[in-house]
Design a binder for these strands. Sequence first.
DNA 1: TATGCCGTATCGCATAGTGATACAATAAAA
DNA 2: TTTTATTGTATCACTATGCGATACGGCATA
Lengths: 258, 258
Amino acid sequence: MPDKDADKSQNSLFVGTLSKGLRVLRAFDESHTSLSLAELVARTGLDKSAVQRLAYTLHVEGMLDKDPTSRRFRPSHAWLELAYAYYWSDPLIARAMPKLVALSRSIGETVNLAQMSGDHIIYALRLPNQRTQFAASIVGRRLPAIATAAGRVMLATWPQPEWETAVATWPIQAVTPKTVTDREEIRQDVEQAMRNGFTITANQMILNEISVALPIRGVDSRAQAAVQVSVSAHSFDFDRVRREILPALQDTANGILA
Amino acid sequence: MPDKDADKSQNSLFVGTLSKGLRVLRAFDESHTSLSLAELVARTGLDKSAVQRLAYTLHVEGMLDKDPTSRRFRPSHAWLELAYAYYWSDPLIARAMPKLVALSRSIGETVNLAQMSGDHIIYALRLPNQRTQFAASIVGRRLPAIATAAGRVMLATWPQPEWETAVATWPIQAVTPKTVTDREEIRQDVEQAMRNGFTITANQMILNEISVALPIRGVDSRAQAAVQVSVSAHSFDFDRVRREILPALQDTANGILA
DNA sequence: TATGCCGTATCGCATAGTGATACAATAAAA
DNA sequence: TTTTATTGTATCACTATGCGATACGGCATA
């Protein structure tokens, strides 16, 4: 029996053609919003004829739109339909939604639901306010977990050996000049989140933004999700966040318990 | 040369294996949130071995999660990542987002951005309030275009022969006992939307909900998107909607012009 | 306990998908 | 404007990938 994990393409269950098709889909991202055939070839590393066939099939199947004039491809509405199916499949989303909406309305700030996704977090629900940047308003964004308040409070609920390994090994990405990249400092923040049950960060993903997060624990006490609020550092400091945002956030997180 | 349009599977560019993989993905929807191998076989019509290979590949590629105990499959976070790429690819989203957020905050009601998608509309952005049902809070939902306020106001900006054909032939789905299914009545509503520049409906998709929508026209005056607000029929009637919601909605739509 | 169903694993086979290639169309450079 | 380069489209011979059939173990149901 072939080694299932050594090289997935050596496993006889693996369907290479489907894998290549997914590679074409994944060529599109925030910096590649529409792509020509040649660009798809470059970005996927596949042969030109293969890309022609795969892109044609994705287009016929409604996964890609093709501009008749420029002949460039771009994501279709079908990508939003997949998000729709995802939302129904994750019971936490339906439980969290009304509570996040209520919180967002009551405090007037940006509210997010983040989930652990490998060594990153992904934003599953985003309730922006008028200050929120576009990139921070849309679902599906992934950020390195240990660089974010949400990631750190989830890790803080894991067994210590696990979160310490995560802090020591997971990727760090400096997004602002003030992003903390010292792993010891991150470790201390996670440790403090263990004690406090929440964490507050500033300037990590967006300059002049303060972020406060609480974990949403599962039945085993281990969190795979967190609620998180962003506020402007021009209007808040850590003390004001603790007084004015944290109580409502704690009530919200408690009401969503997994 | 094969006839490109007669039967896509007879076209030599068409990749059947990729198409089958997409069929597996599409087996998941709001009523099928997790699926066993056998259920995937039933829902896709594919052979059991094929489904085993396709599902395995989608899992290895991170598109499906597989519960190790129940061995059921469900959508993964990758589906949200696709939505993220879609949002960047559609310039209207970035333009509309801050204006819809502002409108939502100022009137306190549910605000949506809908787009035409074949003979349906699809909700690309949704800013729910505390009353909003879950199904009306999440992106990616598709509804028959002519049954919705948003669909009708978009059609109202199309050349008359085109929208009349749409009204005569596109599918109708009765979602509530009060959903209008008479095509003549729908035609009159679209005609009125041509004159007024907006439409108001009640009880069509949700009982006791009033919906008001305005088109977002492109440079050719033809709308492929609309902004739409939902309010409770317990708190509003048509006159109150015209007085209190419509002016702000008109300002918002004007500020998003494509 | 027996039977049925489901998930997993394997195999021989044939066709589906491949990469190479040619050519038309378009873009870019001279 | 002309020439050259690049891109997109179309076709073909070939082979390896993916197929359906089948067997078997595990689990659920009767």
